[in-house]
Design a protein around this nucleic acid. Structure first.
Lengths: 123, 123
DNA sequence: CAGAATCCCCCACGATACTG
DNA sequence: CAGTATCGTGGGGGATTCTG
């Protein structure tokens, strides 16, 4: 039984912290995002994320797998073939990532028109 | 059946990547989350995030500030006082973080009852 | 093709001390 | 109180090579 953590934010044990431990790596969110509705092979993922070395990609995939966020389907054939897809748990994150994606695009757009917004926190 | 799409996501230049560059640090999301609807002083943030050293906290705050995600309000008095709050841009992230928070809590709960879900990716 | 193994460098980050 | 400055270290992560 847990110590009571009824505070939603005040705790470092908040859901956000937990979530970021699972998808907060440098590439994990992007991996999940790209796997969104597809199965992808190792090489395909690598091509989609060119800045991720195979070592890091492997590592991230392993962690996601043992975290039960992705499924690794291996085909014993020659040449080898492995397909990655999301678990249902991970899929629950897609809406979040979608919004984040929108937010990102909006920011990019605002940047490009030199819009320096902000200033008011207007409590 | 996967090859199909000129998937929108294929770009590493996607919004998710961009967004994670801004809030994807190790602590940034948690900082934003905790600032959600309040102003917090430096020390308060530090206490809320005990695992974050002052150095890292300072650094993260500086980056968030120059990224125009937080506002740093300084009071020239003795002893010094600084209050941090979110910009409106950052506030747009709160709903998503809420979603993420919920997801996290759900996962924690599922873990604690030993629920090993998953298996089907069923595209 | 999908990784594992190895080598190695660099800097992210903690610890500590100091300051306005 | 809210930071800066400095130092030292671990390990994150790239490049390369090898294998089933």
């Amino acid at each position: 039984m847990k110590k009571k953590t009824e505070i939603n934010q005040q705790c470092s044990r908040c859901g956000v912290e937990y979530a970021f431990k699972r998808i907060g790596g440098k590439y994990k969110a992007r991996i999940i995002w790209n796997l969104g509705n597809t199965e992808l092979r190792f090489g395909e993922l690598g091509r989609i994320l060119p800045d991720v070395s195979t070592k890091m990609l492997t590592q991230a995939l392993r962690e996601l797998e043992s975290d039960q966020l992705i499924i690794r389907k291996m085909y014993y054939e020659v040449p080898p073939k492995v397909e990655y897809s999301l678990t249902v748990t991970a899929r629950q994150l897609i809406p979040f990532l979608e919004h984040l994606n929108d937010w990102g695009h909006t920011q990019i757009k605002n940047e490009s028109i030199g819009k320096t917004n902000e200033g008011s926190s207007s409590n």
